[in-house]
């Protein structure tokens, strides 16, 4: 685990988005020069509508790898509630209104109930956590999330001794989420973690990226981020958190139990039945970059491997 917490400067402080996007323009310019064509004038920026989140603490859990651009992170999304295409969420999430928002907390805990987003967030200082994100489809990104440890929140609800798992549920609003009007999966989307996974310091609830509030297509206003698991575990737009005794159902394992398990830990040795998980395409790496090797637990093995000691990861995938 990296310990250099001092002298850390957040990427969102030192590198304004315009500069991040310059890399993109530069790449486009190269492509255009190669094709012998004129350079387009369009420049990118974080749209003004995204509210800044104020002071952020750096985190020793952040990776040193260069984050993907805001544009990459906010235009290439798997969020089937808005459609199954990668560009559907950014195109079709305008009608979604994540304010006001509240979360129902129930199940095996002493202090459950409905809690507004403001009350939920109030006691938690926000941190920037730059994590690798590995999708089950064998592509990856580096995302500068803004959030706080899920465990700090869960403790406030005083889970009892029967709370062995935490279940999460995404909002169901077919009138605002066009993807939900088709029965691609059984809405609402549900996910879950074992209690020790939920309490692990790497597990966060995110409310932003790049120092601004989460765009709708990234799971506004509140989403889970579990960096050592495939992206689909990191459930978006959460409206319900339940403490439960039995392993809760999860959407993808309900939809295709042979292909997606409850744990869904990133594991280069356990292939998806239809494709290899040994390597991944890093978004933004360029046309000729090929694929890079996938790391056990997405590179977080040192921090989380002990959670699964004694388990057969080939069977409990």
């Amino acid at each position: 685990m990296p310990v250099n917490t001092k002298n850390r400067i957040l990427p969102s402080e030192i590198t304004p988005p315009e500069v991040y996007f310059n890399r993109r323009l530069f790449m486009q310019a190269g492509l255009v020069a190669g094709a012998g064509l004129a350079l387009p004038a369009a420049a990118d920026a974080i749209p003004a509508a995204h509210r800044r989140l104020g002071e952020l603490r750096p985190s020793p859990f952040s990776t040193d790898e260069a984050p993907n651009t805001f544009e990459e992170i906010s235009t290439y999304n798997n969020f089937y509630e808005f459609g199954t295409g990668k560009s559907d969420p950014v195109r079709l999430s305008h009608r979604f209104n994540p304010r006001p928002w509240s979360v129902r907390v129930d199940g095996e805990c002493d202090k459950g109930g409905d809690i507004t987003l403001e009350d939920l967030l109030a006691p938690h200082p926000l941190e920037e956590r730059i994590y690798r994100l590995r999708c089950v489809e064998a592509w990856s990104m580096v995302v500068p999330w803004v959030g706080f440890p899920l465990g700090d929140l869960l403790k406030r609800f005083e889970p009892n001794s029967r709370a062995k798992y935490v279940a999460f549920e995404t909002v169901y609003r077919p009138e605002e989420m066009p993807g939900q009007r088709a029965r691609i999966i059984d809405w609402p989307y549900v996910e879950g973690l074992r209690m020790d996974e939920a309490m692990h310091p790497l597990t966060i609830l995110a409310v932003g990226i790049y120092g601004v509030e989460l765009p709708n297509q990234n799971g506004a206003p509140l989403r889970l981020v579990v960096p050592w698991k495939y992206g689909f575990k990191s459930i978006k737009s959460i409206v319900r958190i339940s403490f439960v005794e039995e392993e809760p159902p999860t959407s993808w394992s309900l939809s295709a139990p042979r292909e997606y398990g409850f744990y869904a830990n990133v594991n280069p040795e356990v292939d998806h039945p239809r494709w290899s998980q040994a390597r991944e395409r890093r978004i933004g790496a360029g046309f000729f970059a090929g694929r890079q090797p996938t790391l056990m637990f997405n590179g977080y093995a040192e921090d989380v491997a002990s959670l699964y000691a004694g388990m057969d990861l080939q069977r409990q995938f």
Partner: peptide, 15 residues
Amino acid sequence: GSGLVSPGLGANPVE
């Protein structure tokens, strides 16, 4: 790909 027509090829052009 050349940027003459919008949208471009997106974050994962190879795919």
